[in-house]
């Protein structure tokens, strides 16, 4: 059978969702952000909620998330996305409101905002990208950087006595009464991507049912910050990140 006969519209089984704009993503090759953006866009398309979804982008590499998903976007000050989301959802309860935050944004400068939004049980979705490093500013230590991990501000590796311990913020979030769904996923292979998409879908569905805050952590790679290749970064993540940040649902009610 000739390739020409396969490549026909009626045979298409997977392609770019129209919720994604045509803009070329500014992310480095292999960056997990692109996959997660795509999954959110696909969930929005499948649920038919493009006209009802408001995204809140953070400060960090994904500040430009608004360039890629064709929905209404707010761009928050560093760490404050959950505060914007709180007001947005309370003022427009029929909308789907999600924040998209990195580890510096959510687990360092914005710790107060995320804790209290989750504790109030705001009916929002939080997508938390944990790649254990500050990408946009050039690879400095994040709150989630592993012990021993080398970054621009821990050139000899993170040491507990000097830099403190990596923060398992998702475990903390899971303790809060206001959260209904807390999960940790990843996107390094097709099975993981499909699981993450299911998690994001569930989070958006929860938000419509007013069950409380849904929190999806995606353990991610930053091959530029980690100074390695995309493929090796995925392997490093599996070997080093997963033992400390184990995947799976922490709470689902």
């Amino acid at each position: 059978m000739d390739i020409k006969d396969i490549i026909k519209p009626e045979n298409k089984v997977y392609g770019k969702t129209p919720v994604l704009k045509d803009a070329v993503l500014h992310y480095c090759p292999g960056c997990s952000h692109g996959v997660v953006h795509k999954l959110i866009a696909e969930v929005i398309e499948e649920m038919g909620i493009q006209d009802k979804t408001i995204g809140i982008s953070p400060v960090g590499c994904s500040v430009f998330a608004y360039n890629y998903l064709d929905i209404d976007w707010q761009q928050a000050a560093h760490g404050r996305a959950p505060a914007l989301a709180t007001a947005t959802k309370r003022l427009m309860p029929d909308k789907y409101v999600f924040t998209y935050q990195g580890d510096g944004d959510l687990a360092s400068i914005g710790t107060a905002e995320i804790m209290h939004a989750c504790n109030r049980g705001e009916n929002i979705v939080v997508i938390f990208i944990n790649n254990a490093i500050y990408g946009m500013t050039g690879g400095q230590m994040a709150p989630t950087t592993l012990l021993g991990q080398v970054t621009a501000t821990t050139p000899y590796g993170r040491q507990a006595d000097l830099n403190g311990y990596p923060l398992k913020i998702t475990e903390l979030i899971a303790q809060l009464e206001g959260t209904c769904y807390v999960t940790r996923q990843s996107v390094q292979n097709p099975a993981a991507v499909r699981k993450t998409k299911k998690a994001i879908r569930k989070a958006f569905e929860n938000s419509a049912m007013n069950k409380g805050t849904s929190f999806v952590e995606v353990v991610s790679t930053c091959n530029s910050g980690w100074k390695t290749t995309p493929v090796k970064a995925n392997k490093w993540m599996e070997e080093n990140m997963f033992p400390f940040y184990p995947l799976g649902d922490m709470k689902d009610r």
Partner: peptide, 14 residues
């Protein structure tokens, strides 16, 4: 107050 003003920011966006 940091959070209040950012809630105002979010509400104003709407």
């Amino acid at each position: 107050e940091t959070s209040s003003i950012n809630m105002v920011y979010g509400g104003a966006c709407c």
